[in-house]
């Protein structure tokens, strides 16, 4: 899979309150959440973000609460992938589980706001179109790759549910 998009650059420790403020957590609607994505720290984000755009950030992206509303609002706003030096743990799980691609990359400091990146997941490359530089990233471990390939955690659960209906003792 290949993706091309424009970079929105963020710093270190972007927390889930920065991504979606708690005052909007009284809804679960992806569209509505995406309207308030990054509202506190980048008020223009929701208006200007285009489908396919890419977030590039520093350390510990997504730290803070467990709200899945955070990756949902990012996905809902059209962001195709988040690239960061590192991710907070629960944000990482949530993104895998809902199918928002994440990439860990050490060299994010060389990428600037407005750069256009081309991401090739099949080979694990990020190419910066501004200067032609190519960065390698590690693909997911096999276990997680399986969840993603299945289409997310709920797709696996769906199979399980069907299995139960057929057979009272499924072997999962």
């Amino acid at each position: 899979m290949k993706i091309k998009g424009t970079v929105w650059k963020f710093g270190d420790h972007i927390n889930t309150d920065d991504i979606i403020s708690a005052r909007y957590l009284n809804t679960t609607d992806e569209k509505e959440l995406s309207l308030h994505c990054f509202e506190t720290i980048r008020p223009d984000f929701a208006k200007k973000v285009k489908k396919g755009d890419i977030i590039v950030a520093g350390e510990n992206f997504g730290c803070g609460s467990s709200r899945e509303h955070a990756p949902i609002s990012i996905k809902g706003s059209g962001i195709s992938v988040v690239i960061a030096k590192s991710f907070a743990r629960i944000f990482f799980r949530n993104s895998i589980n809902i199918g928002l691609p994440l990439i860990e990359l050490k060299e994010v400091d060389e990428i600037e706001e407005g750069d256009i990146l081309e991401v090739d997941f099949s080979v694990g490359h990020v190419k910066n179109m501004r200067n032609g530089k190519i960065y390698k990233f590690n693909r997911y471990p096999e276990f997680l790759e399986k969840i993603i390939e299945s289409g997310g955690l709920m797709k696996i659960a769906e199979k399980y549910v069907k299995e139960i209906e057929k057979n009272e003792n499924p072997k999962y």
Partner: peptide
């Protein structure tokens, strides 16, 4: 909820996860 880690005080392994995780675990 991220502060699920509170119950480590009674010597359980307890950790915060997301909503999809909870849905999956409620089923399986």
């Amino acid at each position: 909820d991220s502060h699920t880690c509170t119950y480590g005080a009674v010597c359980s392994f307890s950790t915060g996860v997301g909503s999809t995780d909870v849905a999956y675990a409620m089923i399986t």
